[in-house]
Simulated scan of single mutants.
Amino acid sequence: MNIISWNARGAECTKFKTTVMNLSRTHHMDILFICEPRISGGKAIDVVKSLGFSNYEIVDANGFSGGMWLLWNASKVTVDIVGTSAQSISACVCWPGQTPWMFTAVYAHPCIAKRQKLWDYLSFVGANHNMPWIIAGDFNEMLRFEDKLGGTSLCRLRGFKTWFDNHDMVDLGFYGSKYTWTNKKGYVIGSALDKSYALIAPLKQ
């Protein structure tokens, strides 16, 4: 099982499609989540259809802001979309012979007030589906102080950590660079804001 989550920050250029094809060849993706494609409507559908996946769910970007695509091949995996919001796509996922589980792909809004609506929505999702649950994506917040190098951390250590702790989630860790964002200026500020956390919750009793 290979699931890739990628904050693309734009999906209209030729380089985007080339990168997806390279990822597919290298990692044999079963499910691909793209956030921040920054295109919508017919243009988004045309790009999605060119990526080689049989099925998809799209939450359109708001102008050039946000947007989410969940793509999969129905010949490999069964994905039933159970709900979408402006900041998430939730689906029941099942491989042949395996127990179904919930997958929620997230792109949290940069605005704190709007981001709070995501944590409330995820609580609703968790309360209504009695399955193992994995969440991945761009949360735009951190779980711990060491997820940021330089700058002030407090503004990004709020709702997500509280939600994470209250729901007994487990951070599954990561491979690669610890810091996935930088301000690209003359002084160093790196953070894990864009890191694709993978989390799993135990079955409810």
Rank of each mutant, 00 (worst) to 15 (best):
I89A: 12
C111S: 05
S50I: 13
C35N: 00
L70W: 08
S50E: 10
A113H: 15
D46E: 09
G42E: 02
Y56E: 01
S50W: 08
Y107C: 09
H109F: 02
A74E: 15
S50N: 13
N62D: 07
W95E: 05
S54T: 15
N55S: 03
I58V: 10
I89C: 05
M68N: 04
V59K: 08
I81H: 12
D60S: 01
Y107L: 03
G66E: 11
P37Y: 09
T104F: 14
I34F: 01
A113E: 15
C35G: 04
S85C: 10
G52W: 08
Y107P: 11
W69Y: 03
S65H: 06
I39F: 03
M102K: 08
L51C: 01
I34E: 03
F64S: 00
G66K: 12
Q98F: 13
A105I: 13
I89D: 07
C92L: 14
A105T: 14
Y56C: 09
I45M: 00
I58D: 07
W69C: 00
F103N: 12
S88V: 11
N62K: 13
V93Q: 09
L71F: 08
M102W: 02
G63S: 05
C35H: 03
P37E: 04
S50A: 12
I34D: 01
V82K: 12
W72C: 08
Q98N: 14
M68I: 14
V59E: 10
C111Q: 06
T104R: 13
D60E: 04
V47T: 01
S40M: 02
P37V: 00
F64P: 00
G63A: 07
L70M: 14
P100A: 00
V82D: 06
P100L: 01
G83C: 14
E36I: 14
I81V: 15
Y107R: 10
Y56W: 04
P96L: 06
C94M: 06
G52V: 03
Y107M: 05
M68Y: 09
I81D: 11
L51K: 01
K49T: 15
W69N: 03
S90E: 06
V48F: 01
Y107D: 12
T78R: 05
G97W: 05
S85N: 08
G66Q: 12
P110W: 11
P100K: 00
D80N: 10
S90A: 08
F103K: 13
I39T: 10
W69G: 03
R38L: 07
